[in-house]
Design a protein around this nucleic acid. Structure first.
Lengths: 327, 327
DNA sequence: CTGAAAGCGCTTACAG
DNA sequence: CTGAAAGCGCTTACAG
């Protein structure tokens, strides 16, 4: 059996109370008792049981993070940074892959509540989630508006959309299209499209957006892209709302005999490390992923500690254009 | 305050014991009491506290997973699958990004013990880890031998190395090199090199392997690649031990004016979904990532449930050659 | 079919 | 400076 505090107490010849005190460094303990207890802990290879501690303290130091899926490079990197930062602050991370599915979001949410997480970082859609529970946990979302009372961290999607579109125009594209994920969802990510539309309008162009219902599915992507080429054979510039779509686009374009960037210029979005390594030629708008993670954790911890300030409801971080050879 | 079992009991007009019984569906309860209790739970929006449950049951349904970093597509996909499978089996996942650093592995390991995880899936190096603790948890590793008593799940690295090398030879390469991660570590991944060396020898060729000390660092990769091109200008075939290295290789080769596949053929390793999307042209050896995740979870749960069988100590899964246009 | 009691491993007032 | 007692929210023998 794993040793418990009373075992240590017995070996050290003190009470469990005293052991607990040296463990938590609380109250006065004589150096001698302290040494005794520490020797006993070492001898028994004792580790405190955090489950018992959490029960008493009503604090788990656990946070939940809900992402669509860590296999997507953007979420994989985001998850990495969030977990790393949390670990450095002595928080532990319970991971949830929601696949953007409402049923999964719901059951994960309930799981996190049952496990008494101190807070959650959500990169997920479902709006009803939060209101459904009377006593919402501290929560912060990334790129998704869940409710007006929940803080959001995102990068400057509007500016990203503007920059991407302006670049295509500057490069001389005449027929510029946009491909996006599911549009009905009210996410800041839709601001990318807004940026695109605004710039197009300013230049007297018609904005046309193709929607991929399930952006995580590559087959779905190919279908929409095929349709796009069919309906707009004259297209010579495309702003894709993420790098994976852009990559699929490039592969499909080659099948149609379109040369990139001569016949068709493509710009993506996200600029993950992975994409910079695997497809360094891609022009893209880079999101400051690590910074997003940092801010999200920072805001969440403030909520948890209770010194949360109103002005931090909506944090918007700068993006950066990275020019490759696809434009 | 969150409602607890005694609150529910009060509302339902029964004892806490009874509430617990309907919660766990244990023992006999009259339909009427059951309905009463359920109504009370709904009314109070009650959710059981899993921390308290875990304390009593000495079972958390929590497993730890330690990977180098989820931002790497291979580990991102592996993590996704492991977590998804666990969720479907009502296990929760505590995520740890070790960066292959011994200090982090150690502190994560201790953290997992304190949190009373039921088991851990480790994709990590440190050998001393396990022996250091008298009472090791149920554990399974992926692609890493920690100790002879710990089961390993991996794909057929030797066959992968053989297939990769044979392909380059079949394509007419005369000077074939290999780039690998840190070689001193006794991982099944080194079998890839063994496969390479064996085939080279069979064909009377000299096997030469370049080592990247920190495979997670792209700057490091570039340095080694530059050295490789300097020392072996006549190289015309390279087997890279993962797809990211292969991608960096391809980018560097272009700087040296080498045309791929005419002047230089490149084959990678892993074949993640992400890589198939971002760099579909890459020839590679695909690991069955989802299957690896499945087996790892399966073996771990058997250890946890206690019906673990000896013959499953070393599970080796088949790999698959995927031919792109880089060979 | 239901409840009172004890206990999971810890911590914190409260005494001394 | 140290210890006995009570309790965190739950569950399981044990009675009835």
């Amino acid at each position: 059996m794993k040793p418990k505090i009373s075992d240590v107490a017995k070996v050290a010849g003190v009470s469990p109370t005293t052991v607990s005190r040296v463990l938590n460094n609380r109250g006065y303990i004589s150096q001698e008792t302290r040494d005794n207890v520490e020797r006993a802990m070492k001898k028994l290879n004792y580790f405190p049981n955090d489950v018992a501690r959490s029960l008493f303290n009503k604090r788990t130091n656990l946070i939940g993070i809900i992402v669509p899926q860590t296999s997507n490079p953007f979420f994989g990197e985001l998850t990495f940074h969030i977990e790393s930062i949390c670990a450095s602050l002595h928080y532990k991370v319970l991971l949830c892959n929601s696949l953007n599915r409402v049923d999964k979001e719901k059951s994960y949410w309930e799981m996190l509540m049952r496990n008494q997480v101190d807070g959650v970082i959500a990169v997920t859609y479902n709006r009803g989630l939060v209101n459904a529970h009377e006593k919402p946990l501290p929560i912060v979302t990334i790129d998704h508006y869940l409710s007006p009372t929940i803080p959001v961290v995102s990068s400057d999607n509007y500016a990203g959309g503007v920059q991407a579109t302006e670049l295509l125009i500057a490069k001389g594209c005449q027929h510029i299209l946009h491909i996006n994920g599911p549009l009905k969802l009210e996410t800041p990510a839709n601001l990318r499209r807004k940026g695109y539309e605004t710039v197009m309008q300013e230049h007297g162009r018609t904005a046309i957006t193709y929607e991929i219902a399930n952006a995580l599915n590559r087959g779905e992507q190919q279908k929409v892209i095929a349709q796009l080429f069919r309906e707009h054979p004259q297209v010579d510039g495309i702003f894709a709302s993420d790098d994976l779509i852009a990559a699929t686009l490039i592969a499909e374009a080659q099948k149609y005999g379109k040369h990139i960037p001569k016949d068709l210029k493509v710009i993506g979005y996200d600029g993950t490390e992975t994409c910079q390594t695997l497809l360094p030629s891609l022009t893209t708008i880079r999101q400051p992923i690590e910074l997003i993670a940092q801010k999200a954790v920072e805001v969440l911890l403030k909520e948890i500690e209770g010194d949360y300030e109103q002005e931090e409801m909506d944090i918007c971080l700068p993006v950066q254009l990275i020019e490759g050879t696809t434009t």
